[in-house]
Amino acid sequence: MGPVIGLTCSHDMQNDRIWLARNYTRAVEAAGGIPLLLDYSGNAGVFKKLVNYLDGVILTGGVDVDPVFFDQEPSPACGEIDPERDCFEMELTRLFLSAGLPVLGICRGMQVLNIAAGGDIYQDIYSGSQRGIQHRQQAPRWHPTHDIEVVKGTLLERITGGGKIRVNSFHHQAVRKIAPGFIVSARSSDGVVEGIERPDLPFVVGIQCHPETMWPRDKLFLSIFQALVRAAACRGDIPS
Rank of each mutant, 00 (worst) to 15 (best):
R230P: 01
D124F: 11
L54A: 05
F182V: 04
K219Q: 15
T154P: 06
T8P: 13
R85I: 13
Q134A: 08
G79W: 02
H171E: 08
G100K: 00
K49C: 03
R158S: 13
N43W: 11
A232K: 04
A77R: 08
E84V: 05
A116C: 02
W19V: 08
R26W: 08
A233I: 00
R26H: 09
F221E: 10
P83I: 03
Q226L: 03
L20H: 05
G161F: 07
R85E: 13
E80K: 14
P211M: 12
E194L: 00
I125R: 13
N114C: 03
A232W: 02
L101V: 03
T145P: 04
P239L: 07
I159R: 04
D190S: 04
D71C: 04
V68Q: 13
L201I: 14
D120Q: 05
D218V: 09
I121A: 11
N114E: 08
D190K: 02
I238S: 08
D190P: 07
G191Q: 00
P211N: 09
D82R: 10
A21V: 04
F225G: 14
V205A: 01
N168Y: 15
C107H: 11
G128Q: 08
L101Y: 04
S98Q: 15
A27T: 04
L97W: 04
G132V: 06
M1I: 14
W19E: 14
L97C: 05
A231W: 06
Q123F: 06
E84S: 11
D190G: 05
C107E: 10
T25P: 02
F47L: 08
T93A: 09
L59F: 09
P140G: 01
T213P: 00
V46C: 02
K177H: 11
L95P: 04
Q137M: 15
D200R: 05
A174I: 10
V103L: 13
P180G: 07
S75F: 03
L20C: 15
D71Y: 09
G79A: 15
Y24V: 12
L7V: 11
P211R: 14
G61L: 06
D16W: 03
L220K: 09
C234W: 05
R230N: 11
L222P: 06
T160H: 02
D82K: 12
H135K: 13
